[in-house]
Design a protein around this nucleic acid. Structure first.
Lengths: 338, 338
DNA sequence: ATTTAGCACTGTTGGAAAATGAGTGCTAAA
DNA sequence: TTTAGCACTCATTTTCCAACAGTGCTAAAT
């Protein structure tokens, strides 16, 4: 891989990113002051090496997954975000009015709009949250709401209908017991300790302890399940020329609707704070897309932002956009964690 | 419109609903023991009347919007829900474990799955909710959560970063004042009365009253905005044969992503409790779909469930399914509003 | 007065054949 | 090493044609 070959590969990847059409030898003649035949020879080598592919024997070349990977690792220049892109994002942070999580959503919406890719924001993994308190609010004689609050400020609530059998005061009493015993417990351990530690206690003090126990159990269980997904520009990616056939389009649309699958985007936790790029089969999501992802941490809340595009995605641009957002989030965190 | 003509129209609509292919005269010969020529004559009349259309001069007939409307109003037989459909829905209500709003979502998901249409559940219009109480929970010295609870059991919460300037006790004191003064106030009037009634009071008692006021204002404002949309089987409708071309598919996909547009499905409040059918242009949503919708009220919470399908939708089936759900919801409400 | 058989006509659909064109690999000369 | 030239391949587009489903109309039959 001498310099010229690198440059040719780089050029091919980048023009394919731009045009979405297989690139032929003639297209590069001018750029390199070489004849098409020479370029063809180089292309043949690059294909041999596994970086390029052909759709059929007489078509132009298309980067393979290995080609993109090589491009991303060795060829891509770390460009700064462009002025106009920055301008659009700046507005969001400038006002400072938005809550941070809303600001993130908004950012990803803008990124989706200007790039025609789809973004996801995965938040509130509720890991690292500890129980602060649970309160019972009586709505009326037969309905109560249990409000669970963590030390990271996440709140979840659930309404229950209690028959005549349960006295509201017993619920409140139980909530106080729970608060005394379990405050500070990691939220995903609460249901376990509720059973092992609290249940025996209330068994002695509360008449309908079984029902009461179930209510709190449900309330906590709901909390653990809670994790938020926000998809921005869900259909934008379909404007990419690769989605010009129905079955492909439907396939991806269904994946974007599959919560469990989307959540996997945040998995694989090595090199936590780096921007990670998953090209095609490198992620479980879909062999035909690239996912570029960054994790963020604000006030102990952890989340992931990711952009989903075709493999022929504008890597440079997305990386620089995500870096910019991360920078901004960092600075806001210091100044005012709102 | 004599009986025979009605029957022919009915037959045409129903076979088109089944097959999605324009129906020709021959297809009806056997059903009516008439020659194709006679059927053709009748069809010509029905076309004259505006109930049928042709795609081109020598194609079979397709119901027009007016045709569907006529069918729905005069021809469609109110059939009972089929046994197998009922079975699938029964399971949801049988266990009784699910919270009612979850049960509704689940129902619509099942309906979407068995019919290949898309459903929406619009909930928590927060109209008719009155303030029960607002509480302040201190997370740590600089962060608090405001929890707003209504008499219908809806809860909303919002975290705030308070600088050193604000004393948490002042917030708690203010919350007590608000509870005393505004409990019972319709939730969408609270922010107004907060300004007119409460602000003057706290001005005298609270040092940083301007900031404190803003916090509560934000908390209540968030509440009013909250209304939930759940889309079930978002992509199912794309399995309908009418969505065999990309642009049509994208167009609808974008509409299903347009929150404001979806919310309009619940608008137009006459005959509140009837199942309403919007065929094509009859709704603002999209000229090429039919929307069948039903409002529900449970414990004062109001919501809308709707099924979105092609105009060639199985009207009978959807109507009977929605009726069944409504029935079930009604009975659950009486027995136990959970 | 209806109903029907018969016929000419129309537009869709699908496939085969042909033309076009972009791009390749290879060879031999520069 | 590079390049001009040539034969070849395969996707794409266009054209043409046949088959087909269905119509409207007319004239005869019931």
């Amino acid at each position: 891989m001498d310099a010229r070959r690198n440059n040719i590969l780089k050029e091919i990847v980048e023009t394919f990113i731009k045009t979405a059409k297989p690139v032929g030898s003639k297209a590069l003649c001018d750029k390199f002051n070489l004849s098409s035949a020479t370029i063809r020879n180089e292309m043949a080598v690059l294909e041999e090496l596994g970086y390029l592919e052909k759709n059929h024997v007489s078509s132009g070349r298309v980067p393979s997954e290995a080609g993109y990977r090589y491009y991303v690792e060795h060829l891509m220049e770390a460009e700064k975000i462009t002025g106009s892109d920055m301008l659009k994002l700046q507005k969001i942070f400038a006002s400072g009015e938005l809550e941070l999580s809303d600001a993130i959503n908004k950012c990803m919406e803008i990124i989706s709009d200007i790039t025609n890719y789809t973004s996801v924001v995965l938040g509130k993994n509720s890991k690292d949250n500890n129980l602060l308190q649970v309160s019972i609010i009586a709505i009326n004689p037969t309905q109560v709401v249990a409000v669970v609050c963590t030390d990271k400020g996440n709140v979840e609530n659930k309404m229950f209908n209690i028959g005549d059998s349960i006295n509201i005061n017993e619920l409140i009493k139980t909530s106080e017991i729970i608060n005394k015993m379990l405050a500070g417990t990691p939220i995903d351990e609460v249901s376990v300790r509720l059973e092992s530690d609290v249940k025996p206690i209330i068994k002695r003090q509360i008449k309908q302890y079984e029902t009461v126990y179930n209510i709190f159990y449900d309330a906590f269980n709901d909390f653990v399940a809670g994790s938020s997904i926000h998809i921005a520009g869900r259909n934008n990616i379909f404007n990419q020329p690769e989605y010009n056939n129905i079955s492909e389009l439907k396939r991806l649309a269904n994946k974007l609707d599959d919560t469990a699958l989307i959540e996997k985007v945040a998995e694989d936790d090595n090199d936590e704070n780096e921007i990670k790029i998953f090209i095609g089969d490198e992620s479980e999501f879909d062999p035909n897309v690239t996912i570029i992802r960054k994790k963020y941490h604000i006030n102990g809340e952890e989340g992931t932002i990711a952009v989903i595009g075709p493999k022929r995605m504008d890597y440079q641009r997305i990386v620089s956009l995500l870096e910019y957002i991360d920078e901004k989030l960092d600075s806001r965190k210091d100044e005012n964690g709102k």
